[in-house]
């Protein structure tokens, strides 16, 4: 089915523009046309379909599901909801406070908040279309695991003692009086769902279209112009430091999955090890500096630093582990 985009690129680049398939420019341009057209079409169709189904799931509902869960079930569900809940339209602070003031343990809230940006529909659509479903499944599994492990660690550390005073007070008050879940169940008509899905497509597409071009452009340049053996000679096998280096390199890039995944595709084709690539991707997507600074309003610096360090360590471990087992995959 996706072959149609290869044919489109064949036709445009080789027939219409008359470039040779072995020339650098031809190869880079072909990569660019194929990926951009494929990503745009898939994004529009998939975001619409996903939003149509998901229209009635929002953070208020998730909060109501998560109140009064036991720790382990809560961690699992927190990470699971984080994966399927849209996160882009709402910033993390009101969500964090909404959960906390409902008495949900900080560990569960963090499992949700860590997983949410890591696994989102745009990232998943891009991963499937560019890198295949096996890698996508691995990415989702690892993302859930990182979210749950992070939430569990914070739970053990009793992270609630490092909240800002007003948030800690709200949390204590909620735990004491056991707030009832105030679920407002509204049923949506097909027209409401269509309207919601249309808004989602417009909103997400207007945010990511440029990133697609930048990301694929970089990927295409790498694809066409970086010599075939350079990556495998310099960044591949056995060099343990490449994984933490990739994680660190990902921090200032806090873009979003859209810009990074096309570059990953190109790097993997060039022979960059899978674990290193995944570690880089997760660090770029999740460890976003501006987001972190904002969280200072609700958490003390100490907790922020712990979470940040925890993320970097877990991405590095994931990278090493996948590189280690990659030969048997």
């Amino acid at each position: 089915m996706l072959a149609i985009f290869t044919q489109l690129a064949d036709w445009l680049v080789y027939q219409v523009a008359g470039l040779s398939s072995v020339s650098r420019l031809g190869s880079a341009l072909h990569f660019f046309v194929e990926d951009v057209s494929k990503i745009y079409v898939l994004l529009i169709i998939m975001i619409y379909l996903i939003a149509l189904i998901r229209a009635s799931l929002n953070v208020e509902r998730v909060r109501d599901y998560l109140t009064q869960r036991h720790t382990f079930a809560g961690l699992f569900m927190g990470a699971g909801f984080g994966a399927i809940t849209p996160f882009c339209s709402c910033s993390s602070i009101p969500v964090f406070l909404g959960f906390t003031s409902a008495g949900i343990p900080v560990g569960i809230t963090m499992a949700f908040l860590l997983t949410s940006p890591l696994i989102n529909e745009v990232a998943v659509i891009l991963l499937i279309s560019l890198l295949g479903w096996q890698l996508t499944l691995a990415y989702i599994g690892v993302g859930l695991l990182v979210g749950m492990a992070g939430g569990f660690t914070l739970h053990i550390l009793h992270a609630e003692r490092w909240l800002q005073p007003f948030a800690a007070k709200a949390y204590a008050a909620a735990s004491a009086r056991n707030v009832p879940a105030a679920a407002k169940v509204q049923s949506l008509s097909l027209h409401d769902r269509h309207q919601f899905a249309k808004d989602e497509v417009r909103d997400i597409f207007s945010r990511v279209w440029l990133w697609v071009i930048i990301g694929v452009g970089l990927g295409a340049a790498l694809h066409g112009y970086v010599p075939e053996n350079w990556v495998s000679d310099h960044l591949a096998d056995g060099q343990w430091w490449t994984v933490p280096a990739a994680v660190l390199a990902g921090i200032p890039l806090y873009s979003n999955a859209t810009g990074v995944i096309p570059v990953m595709e190109s790097l993997i084709i060039k022979g960059l090890p899978l674990g290193t690539t995944l570690a880089f991707c997760m660090s770029t997507v999740a460890a976003s500096f501006p987001e972190f600074i904002l969280l200072k309003q609700v958490m003390q610096l100490r907790l922020l630093l712990i979470i940040f360090a925890m993320l970097l360590v877990s991405f590095t471990l994931v990278g090493w582990l996948i590189n280690l087992i990659a030969p048997w995959l």
Partner: peptide
């Protein structure tokens, strides 16, 4: 203010 938003019960801005 984050606190006022919390007290209003708002989770999506």
């Amino acid at each position: 203010s984050a606190e006022a938003i919390m007290l209003a019960g708002v989770m999506r801005t």
